[in-house]
């Protein structure tokens, strides 16, 4: 039993190290993109100049990412390959922890961190097969290294039997869906941050500023596409969050004899839900689409992290399942 858990720890630290490697590759990729942009935009300028001589005066400059000389982002590929490898170790760590415990591996803060980050990377990798989001690789791997590292170093607890309230099918459903939702909201958050950077860059380009901002942004989709992507992740995350809220209430009814009692964790789950409802509304409200709604998405995710890290560790309430004492 202990040896399986030891193996889990070993696998986890290996995964962290590989993720760190992926982070470095992705970071160099962004840096490389900057120089790639330089070459490409030099070419694009000629094209635009030639085009503006023609009749089509309101033609928009061709975004760099659509030019024929599309850079191949070798470093990003290395980053992705490392992320996949890291994820496999991470999966191994999670599974061995589950076998060591003889139950689902998400019953204390250490395990929540492990499964949550596992899902973040999984969602990212699955989405990668359909949409090129590798520009988020630095963020994703960075976040995962920090969360996993903190969990492994500070939140680790040995496997102990479950306390009675956790002995429920809802542990499997509620916590898993919450983690999945967190993964989706994390991607939405990252995209919203990119959107804000891109908006700023686009504004500065329009103003003709000499240095419109980090140059890698030129290889990213435009701000409105980033916003749409962020929105799509956020709404799926929001639906799962709504489900988490309902499932939690059903569980609370069985375990604590009431479905809602404004326990600290319940309260924060509700606050997050309302924030994202606000975000979805903001997207449909004139004057709020774009930058203000992006800030709401960012605030919402900040609350998710707060709920996870701060509330679990420092607030006392019925949800005292961090396993830390």
């Amino acid at each position: 039993m202990t040896s399986l858990d030891d193996l889990s720890i070993l696998l986890l630290w290996t995964a962290i190290a590989i993720y760190a490697g992926a982070f470095i590759a992705y970071a160099f990729d962004l840096a490389r993109r900057s120089s790639a942009v330089e070459e490409v935009t030099a070419g694009a300028k000629v094209l635009v100049a030639a085009g503006s001589a023609g009749a089509d005066a309101d033609a928009t400059p061709v975004p760099a990412s659509e030019t024929p000389a599309k850079p191949r982002f070798v470093l990003a590929r290395i980053g992705t390959a490392l992320t996949v490898l890291g994820w496999l170790f991470h999966l191994g760590a999670t599974l061995t922890r589950g076998f060591a415990a003889g139950r689902v591996p998400w019953a204390n803060l250490y395990e929540f961190a492990m499964i949550g980050t596992l899902l973040i990377v999984l969602v990212y990798l699955v989405v990668l097969t359909r949409i090129d989001l590798r520009y988020l690789g630095t963020f994703i791997t960075g976040l995962v290294v920090v969360l996993l590292g903190a969990a492994a170093a500070n939140f680790y607890v040995i496997v102990t039997p479950l306390v009675d309230p956790l002995k429920s099918v809802w542990l499997i459903i509620h916590v898993f869906v919450a983690s999945l939702s967190t993964a989706l909201l994390a991607l939405a958050f990252a995209l919203s941050v990119m959107q804000l950077l891109q908006t700023r860059r686009e504004r500065r380009v329009a103003e003709g500023a000499a240095k419109p901002g980090p140059r890698f942004l030129a290889t990213l989709p435009d701000a409105s596409r980033l916003e749409n992507l962020a929105y799509r992740f956020a709404v799926v995350g929001f639906i799962f969050w709504t489900f988490t809220l309902i499932a939690g209430a059903i569980w609370a009814q069985d375990a604590w004899g009431r479905y809602w009692g404004f326990d600290v964790k319940e309260t924060w789950t509700f606050i997050i839900w309302v924030l994202y409802a606000g975000y979805i509304h903001a997207r449909a409200t004139r004057g709020w689409r774009g930058t203000p709604s992006a800030w709401l998405s960012i605030t919402g995710f900040a609350a998710v992290i707060f709920n996870f890290a701060i509330v679990n560790v420092f607030f006392k309430g019925l949800h005292a399942y961090s396993g830390l004492s």
Partner: peptide
């Protein structure tokens, strides 16, 4: 829409003190 949105945000903020101070219920 604007007022609905602002009320939602106020609701979120107003719920915070209840997580900081102990609640009678």
């Amino acid at each position: 829409m604007r007022v609905a949105l602002v009320l939602l945000l106020i609701l979120a903020i107003a719920a915070i003190p209840g997580s900081i101070f102990p609640q009678r219920m």
